[in-house]
Computed example of a mutant assay.
Amino acid sequence: MTRSPLLIEPLADPSLRVGAIALYIDPEDDTGILALMKTEAFAALTSALPCLIPNDRVARMPAPIQEQLARTGCRFVAGDAIRTAAALDQIDLQPPCEWLGGRWFMTSGGQSGSTQSTSRGLELKLLQLVANEADTRDIEAVFRQDPVLSYHLLRLVNSIGMGVNRNISSFSQAILILGRQQLKRWLNLMLFSANRNDRRSALLLAHVTVRARAMELLAKAAGFDRQMQEQAFMAGMFSLLGTLFAMPLEKILVPLNLSKPLMSALLASEGDLGRMLKAIDAAEQFDAKALTAELVSLGVPLEDYNLLYVEAYQWMLGVVHERQRDDNA
């Protein structure tokens, strides 16, 4: 009996938005993946956006796996339909390519100019204020300086699964209804989606959203309490701030006054949070062996991990789709 982790890659369409995901399934896994495909969570994911599997992998799968994948709506595609790029200047979406993979969105956005610098400066200031529990009036003052930041904040808080029956019309009202901890989460996610001129924005938002939610769910699966789960979410999100701001991560984190365990995890991969970050890093690098080892150290069964990673992608889609509706408005 072979069990293996499910490896997933977000793919961009020609507009560089999230258009599909690629599923990298171990052809030898004849039980674990089959059980996952029969869950409601997997069916919901495959119905929400194209789930692609390269033909060369499909050909090596047992017939029952192929049949179940087809029933769930997965698409089998030629290898040249998905092209990878390591940087923005390597992007090539000429036919027969339909989808773009790779880590191109993790490199510098190549933006310059005073407007971009001003926007980034305001975002860093906002991040520091929120992390340090600043007075609401000081936070509102930053939003008044940048209508794009303000717009995205209210759109996110108003519309993404908050259970609030009325629209939120001010930042102070959002704090009152949501509480500081939940507001921190959405504020920081908003920072990854606020720059319309950054071609990386859509995929970077998708990536950090999956990363943060998967960390939170992994902490829960490992038996950690709610406080630790929240720290795991923040660790996943803060781990990409260096990429977002094109600055050394340590320089960004020091003013945020984070807890010692969180800092140790982010800068040195230490402690329980560090182990979880290493697990997610391994997943993103398609290193099944390293991922499995980290899951064993955390006491999380592969079956549980596979399901929580699917759930993390579902959660990401809600965030990304809302952003895309904003851009089309």
Rank of each mutant, 00 (worst) to 15 (best):
K125P: 08
A312I: 13
Q314C: 05
R199S: 05
V320Q: 00
F105K: 00
E67H: 13
I177M: 14
S201K: 08
P5H: 02
P10N: 09
M234Y: 04
Y151L: 12
A268F: 04
Q128R: 02
V320S: 07
L191F: 00
F42I: 05
Y305P: 13
S172Y: 10
D138N: 06
G318L: 14
S112T: 13
K260A: 15
L88D: 05
V130H: 00
I53K: 02
D13Q: 13
E294Y: 14
L302R: 07
K251A: 07
A35G: 11
S47E: 08
S117H: 09
Y305W: 14
K125Q: 07
A214N: 10
R71N: 14
V18Y: 05
C51E: 08
D30V: 13
L154Y: 07
D138H: 05
A70F: 12
M215A: 07
A246V: 04
L241G: 03
T292W: 02
Y151V: 12
A70M: 13
E250P: 00
G110A: 04
A222S: 09
F192V: 00
V296T: 09
S117Y: 10
S172H: 03
I82L: 15
G271A: 10
A312Y: 08
P95E: 08
Q145K: 08
R199E: 03
V320A: 09
W186E: 11
Q90W: 12
V254E: 00
L49R: 06
A63F: 15
A131V: 01
K289P: 09
N195R: 08
T107N: 06
A214C: 10
D146N: 14
L7Q: 07
A222F: 06
L36V: 10
E40N: 01
K220D: 13
S15W: 09
I280V: 11
D326H: 02
D146S: 11
Q94S: 15
L258H: 01
D138V: 05
Y151S: 14
V164L: 15
M61N: 11
V77E: 05
